[in-house]
Structures are given as C-alpha cells and as structure tokens.
Write a protein that binds this DNA or RNA. Structure first.
Length: 540
RNA sequence: GCUCGUGUGGUGUAGUUCGGUCCAUCAUGCCGCCCUUUCGAGGCGGCGACCCGGGUUCAAAUCCCGGCACGAGCACCA
C-alpha cells in the first residue's frame, strides 16, 4: 500500500478507499498462501503482475554530502593545526575532508599554522615542514595557501586596536578567577565601562611590557545575559612573554585562538569552516565578533570525536613527551599513530583518504577499528604487492621423490597470483632441502604451495604428487638455496614483537611492500644487499 | 550545575530536509561453503539495527511531546 501511494501520489487523498481495496486483496492472497503455500501466491502474482515482485533496492550515497551554500570555484576552506608535532591519524580526517571538498568544488585550502601559544603548546620549529609534507603525502598536492599566524601578528593587533576604538572590546585587568565569578553571575566587570582612551592606553601598557603576564586581557563585549556563560565577554588577546620559536620576543600580546582564527578566516575569505564539534562555542563566539565588525560568518560544519581502538587516547604533546623520554624512537616509530609512522609502515594515502571519505562528516562521536583502515589499505595495495615466502620458526627438511615422480629442478611462481604484476620468481630446488614453518611440519600431509603434495616423515618431505590430489592444507615453503635470514618487526600496542625466519631471497628492494604468503603485508626496510633482511609489519 | 550537540546491526555509514517505492543502503566484522590465488585474498551464502515511551496519520527511521543514554564546551590551550 505504501508503495502504491509512493508511486501514485494522485491517489493519496483517497487513501481510505484504497485501504479497503488493499485489505480485500491481502485477505485473498493470505488465504491462497495459507491453503496452497506462499509459492502459489507468488506464482499467481507472477502471472498477473510480475513487476510487483521487482523491488528496487535503495542505493547508498557515495562520497561526501553537498556543501551548503557552496558555489563551484568560490569555495575556500582551511585546515589549521598547531605546529607542536607532525600530523596524526586524527588530523588526517581534517586534511582529507577539507581537501576533498576543495576538489569537489574547485576550491582552495588554506593551511594555517595556529602557533599563537608558546607557553602551553609551544610550537616546534621543524613541525611546520613536517606538517606541510604530511599534508602533501595525504592529498597528493601542496595546500593552495600557507599562512603562519606568528607571521601575521601585525594584522591581529591592528584589529584588536580597531576593536578597542570601536568600543566593542576592552582591556580587562580582573584576575581570571574574579572575572569567572562575575561572569557566572551575569555581572559586568568594572573594566567594561572604561572610556576608549583609557582602554587604548592600557593596551599600550600591554604591548610595551608594563603590564605583565596575567595582569590584563582584551575582551570582546558580548552581553553578560547570554544564556551560555562561555560566550560572555570572552577573552581575545592575552599577554605572553615566553619566547616564540619563530619570532622570539617580538610581541608581548598574543591573540587567543578564537580571535586569531576569526580574523584570519576573514582575511583569507574562508567560505566554509569544517571543525571538530568541540569548537561549537568558538563558532558562537566568533559570530558575535563578526557581528561587531559587520562581517558574515562562514558556513560551519562539524565532525565528532574519533577514537581508534588500537591506539586509544593519544595527544601530540603526550607523544612528544614519550619520545623525549625514550619510550619511542621518534615521531615515525611504528607504534605511533602519526602520519609519518603510518607512511613508513606502508599505508597508502589513497586508501586513507577513501577511509575518511567513507566515514564522511557526522557529528557523532565514533570509535573505529584500525582493521577497517587496513581493509581499505589491503584492497588498494594488493595489486601492487609482489608475493614472497617468509618462513617463521623454520625447520629444514629433505625433499624426497617417490619412485614414480621426477623432480623439477626449477619452478617458477607468479610475482602476483593474478599476474597483475607480470613475471615470475624462479626457484631452484636442486639442493633438495627446504624450509617449512614448524607448525606446518607437525601436519602430516600438506601441499607445498605451487609445487607438490607431500607427506612428512621424520625429517623428510616425500613428494606424493605434483597434481593436487585432495583437500590437504596448502603451506608456504622455501628452498634452502633461496633462503636468507630475516627479521620481522611487528608493532603491537606499546610493544614491539620480533619474529625471525627465512625470507625468500628474490629481488629484495628497500621500500617495497610485499605480501608474505600466509602471513601478511610488510615493508622491506633493509638495504638491498644486507646480510639480514629487515621487514616491518604492515597488516594482515 | 549551566550551555550545546548526538542517538540506525559488533563497528562505521546511507536514508531523516519535504512521512509513503524502507519487510531499511553499503562497507567492515563474525560464521559457513567454494577455489592449486597463500591469507586477514577472491567468489557465493548467512548473521545482525531504526535509544525508550506516548502522540499525530490510512501510513513514522523520518513530524510532535516526554524520558533516557552518550559526548563536548564552560582555560589568560589549540
């Protein structure tokens, strides 16, 4: 019935009549189904009206939702990290979503370094470049515009003066605690009603260092009656005498994020802000500021908090501390959720993007598994990865031929099972000794992958057939002459697991990702002709 | 406490604007089968969800009211 009304909107106002008719038909059908079975009813329907059985399945929207109020070619977005470390998996969402929208709308992305706090979150000099390169790796191109807040301080300070001159800002000399008390009770602070001239001279004292840290802030006048206390006369700039790694002691007054970001978004002509929903109050504060300046606030969208099961909670400053204390080797330590660590391990940037785009933009707080990212990665890299044999806990067996078989001396195996990478690996088995994993040796009848069915007796592998005779398990193996010592490093939580074994010594090239048969993907980290092959685990 | 936001299978996600073609999409996960493509590959099949309670309506995932749960902000951090 719903379907009829859906297809025939003209019948909707006659729904009551229709309902009776439908009920009669349903009754007939039910009786039929009851007496002769559902199939009979189905058959009857097929004869009279076969189309009714064709239900069209609904499709899932792919890609990102439309951006509200967006005009192709005129969209300006921004991604604004703090340069206190390289980018992490969390940042990847921001980079991907912003750059993807820019692609969709022929827009631009501003990479903006919000480095206005040298005290609580001191910037790292190198981090500016790290972030630029992480961004480029993730998006395949450089940001359209790069700005550093610390280089644009003059602009912010000028606007601060404008704000004081316009009398919609004031210098407040109350202590943070005192102001909070007043604010929570909707009371104005005494500094609020100072003359413009007095505010300007106080401002000078902030700028020339007469007033020390914590002795004054510049506030934006809003209203003390606002229902949300967080918005009431919010602080815009404060005094900070700490040295800034990029500009030293050039400035004594620094803007806070809400102010700096608001001004800079306006300066850059940002049309759409996509930020975490923890910044919703920022939007509200900034909207109030924009009203003072008579600017239009950009469209704003939010995403919720993302937690990756395997990494738990992490913060850039926390990682920094751990690295300094030696708990991790560096920012690209494979246990870390940084972009550089993921890149080092062999994650593919397109797969990462696909993952974040698939998650989309929702305000829900979500908790996703690294497995999902790995699934995206596998499907992306599989066609590019050659296979290699890596035998863990190797045991050496003697290959024996039964009376009828004749041993091949060389076998060739595809580099890729579907031959997506052309060519073959050639194994010489003249030597008659092979490596098998200990766990596989314990099985009696197995098939050596791409070679032969064998029976294991004592330390012998007796060939029974080159053809596959039965459903016995297929295992990977390695001729003695092809084997080279290798170690596989597997990051697991805060630990590192080392697995030793014998690796197929065939075109071992540093930086290549290979699929270790029956084990998983790994990247080759050792130099091309080193004595021991070093492998770093990617995923299964 | 105040302010704001979010609730669709185990995990994510589509559908919610404008109620009907939704016995709800897709991915991931899990289970089974097939396969000389090894596996966490591929193929096939299966499992599994509209937070709860009312209301409006011929019809509610969708609208209204009331609960509940979870999260965030309330920094001179970003």
């Amino acid at each position: 019935m719903g379907r009829i009304l859906g297809e025939r909107t003209d019948l909707r106002n006659r729904a009551k009549e229709l309902k009776r008719l439908v009920e009669i038909e349903v009754e007939i059908a039910n009786t039929l189904a009851h007496e002769k079975g559902v199939d009979a009813a189905r058959k009857a329907l097929e004869e009279t009206n076969p189309e009714a059985l064709n239900r069209q399945k609904q499709a899932k929207r792919v890609g990102l939702k439309d951006l509200p109020n967006a005009e192709k070619g005129k969209v300006v977005l921004r991604f604004a990290p703090n340069p206190n470390g390289p980018l992490t998996l969390g940042h990847a969402r921001g980079v991907t979503i912003n750059s993807e929208y820019a692609n969709l709308y022929d827009g631009k992305v501003v990479l903006r370094f919000d480095d206005t706090d040298s005290k609580v979150k001191p910037p790292i000099k190198e981090a500016y470049e790290w972030i630029e390169s992480d961004y480029k790796w993730l998006t395949g191109k450089k940001p359209d515009i790069i700005v550093r807040a610390s280089e644009r301080m003059m602009i912010y300070l000028q606007y601060a003066v404008k704000m004081l001159e316009g009398n919609f800002g004031y210098v407040c000399k109350c202590s943070a605690a005192k102001f909070k008390k007043l604010r929570d009770n909707s009371l104005e602070c005494p500094c609020r009603n100072k003359e413009v001239q007095e505010n300007l001279s106080d401002w000078k004292m902030m700028e020339n260092g007469t007033l020390k840290e914590g002795e004054a802030v510049v506030r934006v006048k809003t209203s003390m009656d606002l229902p949300n206390p967080a918005l009431r006369d919010w602080p815009a700039l404060r005094i900070q005498h700490t040295l800034h790694p990029m500009v030293g002691d050039k400035y004594k007054v620094w803007p806070l994020l809400d102010f700096q970001s608001a001004i800079e978004d306006h300066e850059q002509g940002v049309t759409h802000i996509i930020r975490g929903k923890d910044l919703m109050d920022s939007t509200r504060k900034q909207t109030l500021l924009y009203a003072h300046f008579q600017w239009d606030y950009p469209e704003t969208l939010y995403w919720g908090r993302v937690k990756i099961h395997e990494f738990g909670r992490f913060s850039t400053s926390g990682m920094r501390k751990d690295i300094e204390e030696g708990n991790f080797t560096d920012w690209d330590d494979p246990r870390l959720p940084t972009i550089r660590a993921l890149q080092r391990r062999g994650f593919n940037s397109d797969a990462m993007r696909a993952f974040w785009i698939d998650l989309g933009l929702t305000q829900k707080d979500i908790s996703v598994s690294l497995q999902t990212i790995e699934a995206f990665n596998s499907s992306k890299i599989d066609e590019m990865c050659e296979r290699r044999s890596f035998v863990r806990n190797p045991e050496l067996l003697e290959l024996k031929t039964s009376e009828k078989g004749i041993n091949n001396q060389e076998i060739s195996i595809n580099r890729h099972p579907m031959n997506l990478i052309e060519g073959a690996r050639v194994w010489n088995i003249d030597d008659k000794r092979i490596y098998l994993e200990k766990v596989d040796v314990e099985k009696e009848n197995i098939r050596l992958k791409d070679y032969a069915d064998i029976e294991i007796k004592d330390s012998n592998a007796i060939i029974q057939s080159y053809e596959r005779l039965d459903r016995r398990p297929i295992v990977h193996w390695l001729p003695f002459s092809m084997a080279k010592k290798a170690i596989l490093t597997i990051p697991q939580g805060n630990d590192i697991i080392i697995q030793e074994g014998m690796m197929e010594n065939f075109e071992i090239i540093k930086g290549n990702i290979v699929q270790l048969e029956r084990v998983g993907y790994a990247i080759i980290e050792s130099e091309n002709n080193s004595d021991i092959i070093k492998l770093l685990w990617l995923h299964g």
